[in-house]
């Protein structure tokens, strides 16, 4: 009897692990965007930054043979891309929605160009963390300690962001800037500089999320390989009501749906594959509808300055 239970549990374990790996790119991208939005900046370019991260990460790994260097390159590339957005919206006061779209279009084109020579190439993937004893604990060991290091980093970054926002002084300042840029400026905080930092962090995280996809999750480069994950990350931030804890929950939920539909396709349930593939996108819409119904609550939770340009009068 116990053996039977154990066996059935073990068949479930790999999906849970893959669920975490499917969730990790979303965890990175959504955490970055959350911090960015908390400072009052809406960057719709997450998809583009993820693609840029994915392609530069992959190319670096392919050239140097080091996946770790690849991840570093992915993060830096994502951040540089976000700086274009920051200069346009924060220094030149362009419309944030339009500029974010431009960043996504730019990132799609740039990544396709850079990745042109890398389509179909493979690289060595980063191994999982094997902790002596801990990873050998049956079931739980594989469940909790058998992932690649980035999964833990993602969770760490997320928890760290939660602590930063609610318990650190600079986190408080960041929230203040997102709540009232005019007041923060009047008190004497450098609103634009703080937003630059927040946008860069968003880019860094989106790049890392993209790099995770091309270096660890698949690992290969294909045009448009993010397949809307950047947009789902944006939806997750709304879903989470701008609270880091809920981002994790949402990311795992979406990771789960992604894996579940893949498994269901493999199992051949008779439902056309295309319809199964639609599930994550339809789930995003459903979640958005459920969470947005109370308009006043959304407006209470959303940073009051989200998306508004700020010009310091001197």
């Amino acid at each position: 009897m116990t053996e039977l239970i154990l066996a059935s549990v073990l068949t479930v374990v790999p999906p849970i692990m893959t669920m975490m790996t499917a969730a990790t790119p979303l965890v990175f991208a959504a955490t970055g965007e959350l911090i960015c939005e908390k400072s009052g900046v809406l960057n719709l370019g997450v998809e583009g930054m993820m693609l840029i991260g994915a392609v530069f990460g992959f190319a670096t790994a392919a050239v140097t043979g080091s996946a770790s260097l690849g991840l570093l390159a992915a993060a830096v590339a994502g951040m540089l891309a976000s700086l274009i957005f920051a200069v346009l919206t924060l220094t030149l006061l362009s419309n944030q929605v339009a500029t974010g779209l431009a960043l996504t279009i730019f990132g799609t084109g740039l990544s396709a160009l850079v990745g042109f020579d890398y389509v179909g190439e493979t690289i060595e993937r980063i191994g999982t963390v094997h902790l002596p004893f801990l990873s050998d604990i049956p079931v739980i060991g594989r469940l909790v300690f058998g992932h690649d290091p980035l999964v833990y980093l993602g969770i760490l970054v997320l928890l760290g962001s939660g602590w930063f926002l609610n318990h650190s002084r600079w986190g408080m300042v960041l929230r203040a800037v997102g709540d009232s840029d005019v007041s923060a400026h009047a008190i004497g905080y450098p609103v634009v500089a703080i937003r630059f930092a927040a946008v860069s962090f968003g880019g860094l995280m989106a790049g890392l999320g993209g790099g995770y996809l091309s270096l660890i999750y698949t690992p290969l480069w294909a045009e448009n390989m993010t397949a809307g994950r950047g947009w789902i990350a944006l939806a997750l931030v709304v879903f989470a009501s701008w609270r880091p804890g809920r981002v994790l929950f949402g990311a795992i939920l979406f990771g789960g749906i992604t894996i579940a539909q893949l498994n269901a396709q493999a199992a051949g349930l008779g439902i056309p594959a295309a319809f199964m593939s639609m599930l994550p996108y339809i789930a995003t819409i459903v979640v958005l509808v459920l969470i947005s119904r109370d308009a006043i609550r959304i407006r209470l939770n959303a940073p009051a300055c989200l998306g508004k340009p700020f010009r310091a009068e001197r």
Binding site: G48, L92, L93, S94, A112
Partner: peptide
Amino acid sequence: PKAVTGLFQGIILFYLLAFDLFTRY
């Protein structure tokens, strides 16, 4: 590579958004 076209499109939009500033300020 054909992807250059996509890149150009993104760049055009960036420049345009940057120059938009001059119509307002």
